[in-house]
């Protein structure tokens, strides 16, 4: 390589390095998990209204994102963090990640979703539920399971695929649902239940992507198993992206776990005013009504109108499992380790 080209490349590299941004109040940085998605025009409307540009950071899945926020809490990467859910909330709060803020829009959010001290603001919620392949079960002449316990029956042997709770957020939600349903003590605990699932040939994948796309037989899945741990909103997504009239999959409403996702202003932000405006905007109808068809979860703002495909094809379970975030935080590591010992 000739020296001139060498120095040109070196100069370009230095220039690019020097151009990395410095924080200012015309910009607010929003750190999210990899599943986050918003229509571009929704963010540009925020910029038109406030003069503030939103910079999006993606930080891995929900668990990885919280860990990265903790690791950088003395010198935060962003002003607002969005996507911490009830399974990681206690950890985030005990690390003191957030500055409390009561959003001007918070009164439009149902009380059961809210944090009593307004340390974080609920933005969306969704239910992790069993999904079934309607045609696949019909071909086997088997009814969809009515309860979690049904899955231990011989008829359901080899039909179920779930996610590993140590690497997957719906996997953790399903584990928590089984712990809540069967309890830690008594004649038949959640441990007995998982032993029976293993005996019934449950398949475990590291993440939702492999479970739903590669092992599940319903909808767009190319696998062989007709029952999968997914979301209550998966059938409307099948209809929407597959351009279908009827959903090829259906939701089992028993044993669902409710995930609530929150946004919080990161302590150490250099633009608290901008961060507040952004949190308000995340709860505004403009943003909230954009949520369902991008992230396939429900908006937290009760006034937000749902798209037709949600109204027609989404299921909202009556009594989803909820669990106190403190209880989750205190037991999660032990539960996952015990689970791993059972299924290994």
């Amino acid at each position: 390589m000739n020296p001139r080209a060498t120095s040109a490349i070196a100069a370009a590299a230095l220039l690019m390095a020097a151009c990395s941004s410095t924080p200012d109040t015309s910009e607010v940085v929003l750190m999210t998990h990899d599943s986050f998605l918003v229509s571009e025009e929704v963010l540009s409307e925020f910029t038109e209204d406030t003069g503030i540009t939103v910079v999006l950071l993606q930080a891995g899945d929900a668990g990885a994102m919280v860990n990265r926020a903790i690791l950088t809490k003395d010198h935060p990467l962003a002003d607002v963090l969005y996507g911490v859910d009830n399974t990681f909330l206690s950890l985030a709060l005990s690390e003191g990640l957030f500055i409390p803020y009561r959003s001007t829009e918070i009164d439009r959010v149902p009380a059961e979703l809210r944090d009593t001290e307004d340390r974080v603001t609920p933005i969306d919620f969704g239910d992790v539920c069993l999904n079934t392949d309607i045609a696949g079960l019909a071909a086997l002449d088997i009814d969809p399971p009515a309860t979690l316990r049904d899955l231990t029956e011989p008829a359901y042997a080899g039909l179920l695929v779930v996610e590993d709770p140590s690497t997957s957020s719906p996997g953790l939600a399903f584990l928590l649902a089984t712990i809540d349903t069967f309890g830690e003590e008594g004649d038949y605990t959640w441990r007995d239940y998982w032993r029976d699932l293993v005996a019934n040939d449950v398949r475990i994948t590291p993440g939702w992507e492999a479970a739903y796309n590669l092992e599940f037989s319903g909808g767009s899945g190319v696998g062989t198993r007709p029952i999968v741990v997914s979301y209550a909103t998966s059938p409307p997504a099948e209809v929407f992206f597959g351009d279908l009239d009827e959903a090829p999959t259906s939701v089992v409403t028993a044993g669902c776990f409710r995930q609530i996702e929150y946004a919080g202003i990161l302590a150490g932000t250099s633009n608290e005013q901008g961060a507040r405006l952004l949190v308000d905007y995340l709860l505004s109808l403009r943003f909230q009504e954009d949520i369902p068809l991008n992230m396939f979860v429900f908006p937290a703002n009760r006034d937000a109108a749902l798209p037709d495909v949600f109204v027609e094809h989404a299921t909202v379970p009556d009594n989803p499992v909820t669990m106190d975030p403190d209880r989750i935080d205190q037991n999660r590591d032990r539960w996952i380790a015990e689970w791993a010992a059972i299924v290994r």
């Binding site: 750190m31 999210t32 990899d34 599943s35 986050f36 998605l37 910079v55 999006l56 950071l57 993606q58 930080a59 891995g60 990885a64 990265r68 990467l77 939702w208 992507e209 739903y212 796309n213 909808g219 767009s220 899945g221 190319v222 997914s230 998966s234 059938p235 997504a237 099948e238 209809v239 929407f240 992206f241 597959g242 999959t249 396939f296």
Partner: peptide, 25 residues
């Protein structure tokens, strides 16, 4: 895969996102 990055829909990011919602396999 393990750094915090400005959201930019590169091909691997796009494939992951498409595989992350039912119906886009």
């Amino acid at each position: 895969a393990f750094i915090v990055r400005r959201t930019s829909t590169t091909i691997p990011v796009a494939i992951f996102r498409l595989l992350g919602r039912p119906g886009s396999f």
